[in-house]
Design a protein around this nucleic acid. Structure first.
Lengths: 158, 158
DNA sequence: TCAAGATAGGCAACCCGGTTGCCTTTGTCA
DNA sequence: TGACAAAGGCAACCGGGTTGCCTATCTTGA
């Protein structure tokens, strides 16, 4: 009954996308439109201290230019703001706005609800087993993967 | 100990990316460079009967233009070829080349090996439990998801 | 039989999240 | 003070998508 390894990969992808898509939709319902996973990742990094373009770029393992674009998007949507900085090279310091904090809180809540939904469907044990298996396979630290950019890249997780 | 729902999503993504990245690297080692998951999906669809741009587009749930680009890439790499067709609207019919078949075979082998590797690490039971849980959660048919294009879209699986 | 409509294909332009290459500004330190 | 590191940003590009619009061919039914 066990199928090919490719199926396994597809299932993992489908699982992620199911969660991510539902979360995106739910967040849109709650008034946070135009939010993408990458925004959430970036916001978290900024919140935990990445207050400049270069620093954010390092934490997300992307180029400065990519980070700058992400920041521009976040700024446009008022999730982050800039403040003058003493070091005139960097000129501004990033700060997560109240709106941004609200997004993070809602995002967390949404994902938690989705997880609970899964637990209701398959049982708490199944979900945590799944999680444990995966964690042991990809490693706690492997949430930092280096690879081509055909998906929102994963940030460092402090 | 159980963490947030977002972690669950991240783990699924990390799992997929681990497999996909390793597969891509391994295929490159075996002489198939420049191969991306989307190529594999498309090739499989063509092999199982999607012999025109429009048909491939339908199976991959993308626009005809996107399918055309993918086909162009596959053709360039000699994984598919075109043949004249009786219907002059479509003008050509797609065919998977020997080279393309070789890629598919190698791809399957690589994924199977990766799966075995995981089984050695976590035990056969764990991997198949993981798979069963996921299958029940996303559904066998959910491998067709409709959503924004920030990742290689999944094809119909016949 | 022939006009309307469905179907296949393709071009151009754009989006998003990345990249590289190159350049300026500012700060630091020998 | 002058060399260099570090931050930022512009322009151009890429991959895998999108939409809008256009033509060519086949099919059908009045």
């Amino acid at each position: 009954m066990s199928r090919s390894g490719a199926d396994l990969a597809l299932l993992l992808l489908a699982g992620f996308r199911t969660l991510a898509d539902r979360a995106t939709a739910e967040l849109a319902d709650r008034g946070f439109e135009d939010v993408r996973p990458v925004h959430d990742f970036a916001l978290r990094s900024i919140l935990s201290g990445a207050d400049s373009t270069s620093e954010l770029a390092r934490r997300l393992s992307v180029t400065r230019q990519a980070a700058a674009k992400t920041i521009a998007a976040l700024e446009e949507r008022r999730y982050v703001a800039r403040q003058p900085d003493s070091d005139d090279r960097r000129r501004t310091r990033l700060r997560v706005t109240e709106h941004g904090l609200a997004l993070l809180r809602q995002g967390e809540a949404v994902f938690d609800e989705l997880r609970e939904q899964w637990e209701k469907q398959s049982g708490k044990a199944s979900v945590s087993t799944l999680e444990e298996t995966l964690r042991s396979l990809v490693g706690d630290s492997a949430i930092r993967l280096d690879s081509p950019g055909w998906i929102a890249r994963l940030p460092d997780v402090e």
